[in-house]
Design a binder for these strands. Structure first.
Lengths: 231, 231
DNA sequence: ACAAAAGTGTTCAATTTACACCCATGG
DNA sequence: CCATGGGTGTAAATTGAACACTTTTGT
């Protein structure tokens, strides 16, 4: 077994960084400045380095692209994409990660010079490089599911947030309206989902809302189910 | 960019092939005949070949190890494991797949000469090569979840099966008792989960049971929830 | 006073759970 | 006729959806 005949390949880590802006789910895209797909839009990502673990590579790419402290953000592996023809440069396998960010003041303040910007997820299918449209679709579906069964929605919000803001996350990610009154009670009765914080947030019009911060719970039981489309 | 400096690595596909035998969840393990971990138990798997897609590699390994027609079996990607030190031979990244098989007459009738056998999943932790114990744990958790929300349980059964056999799958995978009477009604009222088949199956003692076969449905709505351990 | 959004209460239907009870077979 | 497991019925408890109503602010 001195000379191994099996395949050697390269591995990239690609990120689907999602946020909610103006009541719509957005994804961070970059414009590619190198071939292949030069000038096209793509998910941010890069090659794995020697000695680097996969989550570390994802956090490194995240901080390069967004100047966010990766330790604070939710980061979760989605899947591996390794079809032989997916990258014209050769055999490149991609590990896709889902990241959830609050609405950022500056989307592209990273050290990387590439133009990065937020795009609504339902406006970009078909325009992405490589198989990134499929990766994005899988990431969005994963996020939708995570909102049902975990407290991930709070990761879309800032340090403190109102119940309405949290509900806006659900409505944006699920793409459907959610009853404000039932939602409030479900969240409040979900042990450890949110904790009361000091202060109020004054909306443009109407009664000020109480502020909350993330609670310790990771899983939601019972889950917050979206109406199943299945008949 | 003529000479790329980034990491080149090798990629394996490892399989967690699960079945239910004698009311217990089992996994197919092989005894390693080469270094590293020679003589230890491990999940079956192998290196990705040139021009081969990941699911194809998983199906190839599956047929090599079990002599099962991979087209019939449920096969699903779990995750990628790529920590730098996980394989002493060098940088090897593993894509893990979950496979579900009915209880097979011969566990190791494959073309590969390695000794393969079924082992109960809760008796093998700590005895597996590489990080396969962690992979197996993730696969089992995925299977438990799939039983709640999909019709995957039927993949553990043969062509035809009784409701009791299906319930045994749930009890074995979840590791908890399920009420036979409520279970029957839930399955029967779940559109497309099972379809009636001809004939009866006579148990050792008691009334013969009707036979069913898999229905066309993939998702279960409403889901069959296991009592959450949370709270 | 009015509009708008926050938050609480209440009702009705659907679902889940627990368990009683009958059916069909072998010994 | 009895033990054993298959299968059906039903009532209580829980949960979820819909919506009326009150509270708190800015204008």
């Amino acid at each position: 077994m001195a000379d191994r005949e099996h395949l050697r390949l390269e591995l990239t880590v690609d990120l689907a960084i999602l946020t909610v802006r103006e009541n719509l789910l957005h994804v961070l895209l970059i414009e590619r400045e190198n071939e292949p797909y030069r000038g096209d839009l793509a998910l941010p990502g890069g090659f794995l380095r020697a000695g680097e673990d996969l989550p570390d590579a994802a956090r490194r790419e995240l901080s390069e692209e967004t100047a966010l402290d990766g330790k604070e953000l939710h980061l979760e592996q989605i899947a591996v994409y390794g079809a032989p023809g997916r990258d014209p440069r050769g055999r490149v396998v991609s590990v896709a990660y889902l990241a959830i960010a609050p609405d950022l003041p500056l989307p592209s303040a990273g050290s990387d010079a590439r133009a990065a910007h937020w795009a609504p997820v339902d406006k970009v299918s078909g325009t992405l490089a490589f198989d990134h449209a499929a990766i994005l679709a899988d990431a969005v579906e994963r996020a939708r599911q995570r909102l049902e069964f975990t407290t991930l929605a709070a990761a879309f919000c800032g340090q403190t947030f109102t119940i309405s803001e949290l509900r806006n996350v659900y409505e944006a990610v699920w793409g459907m309206p959610v009853d404000p009154r039932n939602f409030s009670r479900k969240v409040a009765s979900s042990e450890g989902f949110v904790l009361p914080a000091d202060g109020l947030r004054v909306p443009e019009t109407g009664r000020p809302a109480r502020l909350y911060r993330r609670g310790p719970a990771q899983v939601l039981s019972p889950p917050l189910m979206r109406p199943t489309a299945g008949s």
